[in-house]
Amino acid sequence: MTASELQPVRTDDGLASQGARQTSRATLLAFVVPAVAIFVLFTLYPVLRTIWNSTQTLGPMGNGTFVGLQNFEEILFRDKTFWKAVSNTAIFTIVGTIADVAGGLLLALCLYAGAPMSRTLRVIWFTPVLMSYVVVGIIWTWLYDYDWGLINHILRWIGLGALEQSWLGDPNTALWAVLVTHLWKWLGFNMIICLAALSALPKEVLGAAELDACGWWAKLVYVITPMLWPTLLNLTVLSFIGKMMMFDLVWIMTGGGPLWATETVSTYVYKRAFNWNTFNLGYPSAIAVLWSGMIIAFVLLMMRLFRQRERLEF
């Protein structure tokens, strides 16, 4: 029989399974190394190299001259196109994000309210999400076409021919036209997420609101929206990130034109890197670094703000 000096022994059930989670170094490496190699070689190294490049003026053979922060100075204080691109991207992001989330919520509510054939509608409404920007961009370029595009056709048909536009050719409408296309592609996504969140809501709450003789608007504002708040915030952040990085659709539909009316930071980076008659990757790298920094800062800020808000409300 063992001696028992009754000393307290801290035991922790959470740790009980730790031992089984150990494995030999070789096994561990075998599991992790491919992912780490990919990460280091094709994510970490490129990012660091882009940051390094941003302080360089690069020649066509990759031979660089160190210029310090000169590129950044040029971007921030002298590059008008950059600021135009920033303002376009900002408009696109802010308006787009609000419309995206609100629209997705409204569509979800439409289905949630018991639409006939709601499963079929849900599947159809989601289809654009699965399509590439190339497909979506080309189709909408055609829909916006001045001569034979559907939108002008409809305007003429209903007698509003005076409103016909070269939608993508007019600097006043081009950005909005691209934005509408982007919304069209992504609304289904937001709808599905909102719908999932709605279905997860306890039925009693909505029932209680019914008993309180709540109008649908009041119900939306005071009951549904607050309860979906975490989901909506999540979508906001996602939508925000996506739009800050907007490239494909703009490039396909307008190439940033007319007159920089739809130039986004991303298309500008691409143009400076691969479309200008220079081989200097340093300058576009600096833009990319600057912009990525802003995106990450914004996202962290938003997550922080929202998290506080969330804590207050729940």
């Binding site: 001045y146 070269s166 993508l168 050719g169 034109g257």
Partner: peptide
């Protein structure tokens, strides 16, 4: 010029 001058 045509109305769709910018995109043509």
């Amino acid at each position: 010029y045509p109305k769709n001058f910018m995109t043509l």
